[in-house]
């Protein structure tokens, strides 16, 4: 009998601790599949951040280092500079990357570090109990904005991909989601291209993946997917914001 699917080698056998309906599991699998397909599972070094994905080191079958809150791109920079032959990735949420670690993210991108960032944006601080994040939508309720986020008090949702798009050192920037099989395939392709950016030494690759947090959003898993498709995508449009291939074509290299 022909085997059509299997658990990626890049995933360990540890059961995920993620809540029902959370899309971290899908994203972990996509990242693991991509590591396997590029033959990088034995070569990769991952950085686990602070937040729900702190336990990523239990799930990925490669060397991992846990970084302090927000510091993952800086730690990845140090590792990649010492071991340029290794594939180095960070896995960060919006509390880690968009909030306390936005400085590290922008500067790693601006230096054109050859690292790959998987940025899981679920518009809320998941681990600490659903407080407002920089990416929380206007009007969205959170445990620190019980009546909804307002511009006057809390400012605007932070568009990370759009910010990084402006930086010459960022080689590949895309925003995707995993709310349907077709979107999952698009995310997989985006991860592959972000991997290529690092492999070809073109600079920083970042894939921002709009993700669910059903528990803190107080929604069931299906409602949460609908929320992404109807509300989050309106604020955070999907697409490729920066692609080195286009630049290569334009520069005639």
């Amino acid at each position: 009998m022909r085997q059509v699917t299997a658990k990626p080698k890049a995933l360990t056998n540890a059961p995920f601790h993620y809540c029902p309906g959370c899309t971290h599991g899908i994203i972990h699998r996509l990242l693991a599949e991509t590591l396997d397909e590029f033959g990088l599972t034995e070569n990769a070094i991952g950085i686990a951040s602070v937040g729900c994905s702190v336990f990523a080191y239990d799930y990925f079958n490669c060397d991992m280092q846990q970084a302090a809150h927000g510091r993952a791109p800086a730690v990845a920079t140090g590792i990649k500079r010492v071991r340029p032959q290794n594939f180095v990735f960070t896995y960060q949420g919006d509390g880690d990357l968009g909030s306390i670690g936005i400085g590290e993210t922008i500067h790693a991108a601006n230096r054109g570090e050859n690292i790959t960032i998987i940025f899981v944006n679920n518009a809320v601080y998941g681990m600490t109990g659903g407080q407002m994040a920089p990416t929380t939508l206007l009007g969205q309720k959170s445990s620190t904005t019980p009546t909804g986020r307002s511009i006057g008090e809390h400012g605007y949702p932070l568009p990370v991909s759009e910010l990084l798009q402006a930086l010459p050192g960022a080689a590949y920037v895309a925003r995707t989601t995993v709310t349907s099989p077709s979107q999952i395939r698009i995310t997989k392709r985006a991860l592959a291209q972000a991997f290529q950016a690092q492999i070809q030494g073109r600079g920083l690759g970042l894939v921002e993946i709009l993700s669910t947090c059903p528990v803190n959003w107080h929604m069931d898993p299906v409602e949460a997917l609908t929320f992404i498709n109807e509300e989050m995508v309106a604020q955070f449009p999907l697409g490729v914001f920066k692609d080195f291939d286009e630049e290569v074509a334009r520069d005639g290299k």
Binding site: H69, T128, G129, S143, T144, T145, P146
Partner: peptide, 17 residues
Amino acid sequence: PITPQTEIVQLYSTFVN
């Protein structure tokens, strides 16, 4: 927020709201 302090300021933000 930071565990295990988070609740203090979260409760306070509720008082504000």
